[in-house]
């Protein structure tokens, strides 16, 4: 494990290993999501209480899971960057952030579109909704730090500290429906005693969630590759500027 960890630390090695992975992983994600959408819209029954609005669940719940998974990846990578100075950790954390922000935004908006017909309101300051909104702002703050601090090493450190401090919100989101049980329903899949959801609805939900997760992996790898290239471009430009400057001095 420790050996592997360092074997993948080298960006050049990462570029070589990930080169042929992105396309096949994205294709698997595409197949899973297509199957998931088919089952979600055609192949599953309407809910006996919620009617067809239950079909929003098949995108809302996976988006919400992914918003937490992305943040966890970002926080773990940030911790690795701060403690071990792992050269890929920064790249991983920075690349995960826009994906996480997108999934969080989708969780919020699809939740709102589900809440209006079922709860009678687009938004309520329920603990779950509020903590997920804070998660969205954490992602935006994280991205803003990267965007505003010019010097990459300082930007990476500040962003990593924010990601770690913000991680306290992740368990709060998970337990919010238990601690402050207001409007949002409690967990019905990851609960003690097993899922309480009907199998005809659990299957599309799990397929969709797997599809979203695999898509996240493909996007993360692609964005990490782009980020490594961006850093290479930056250092090549600096080197050329250095050559040109040296030339003038000589």
């Amino acid at each position: 494990m420790a050996l592997n960890f360092h074997a993948y630390a080298n960006p050049a090695r990462f570029m070589m290993l990930s080169r042929r992975l992105v396309a096949p992983i994205a294709m698997i994600a595409g197949v899973l999501i297509a199957l998931g959408v088919y089952l979600a819209l055609w192949g599953s029954p309407p809910d006996y209480q919620q009617g067809d609005t239950v079909r929003i669940m098949y995108i809302h719940v996976p988006a919400a899971w992914l918003s937490l998974l992305c943040y966890t990846v970002m926080a773990l990578a940030s911790a690795t960057a701060l403690v071990f100075r792992h050269p890929l950790a920064d790249v991983c954390a920075k690349s995960a952030a826009p994906i996480g922000a997108s999934f969080t935004f989708l969780a919020l908006v699809t939740g709102s579109l589900w809440g209006k017909p079922m709860w009678g309101t687009w938004w309520v300051w329920d603990a779950r909704l509020t903590s997920v909104l804070i998660l969205f702002f954490l992602y935006l703050g994280y991205l803003a730090l990267w965007a505003t601090i010019e010097e990459p090493v300082r930007a990476a450190r500040a962003a990593a500290v924010l990601a770690l401090v913000g991680f306290v919100n992740v368990p709060i989101i998970h337990y919010s429906v238990v601690w402050w049980n207001t409007l949002h329903q409690p967990a019905s899949v990851f609960r003690i005693g097993g899922p309480t959801i009907a199998p005809s609805m659990l299957a599309p939900l799990l397929i969709m969630a797997t599809g979203f997760t695999v898509m996240f992996v493909a996007l993360l790898l692609l964005r990490m590759r782009a980020e490594i290239l961006r850093r290479r471009v930056r250092s090549l430009r600096l080197a050329q500027a250095g050559f040109a400057g040296g030339g003038r001095e000589a």
């Binding site: 819209l41 079909r55 929003i56 995108i59 989708l106 699809t110 589900w114 017909p117």
Partner: peptide
């Protein structure tokens, strides 16, 4: 028509398609 909920279900799926 999504059982009368077309105005909620389709925008939700459309938005996911757009953002992803």
């Amino acid at each position: 028509s999504m059982g009368g909920y077309a105005g909620y279900v389709w925008p939700a799926y459309g938005l996911v398609l757009l953002i992803i």
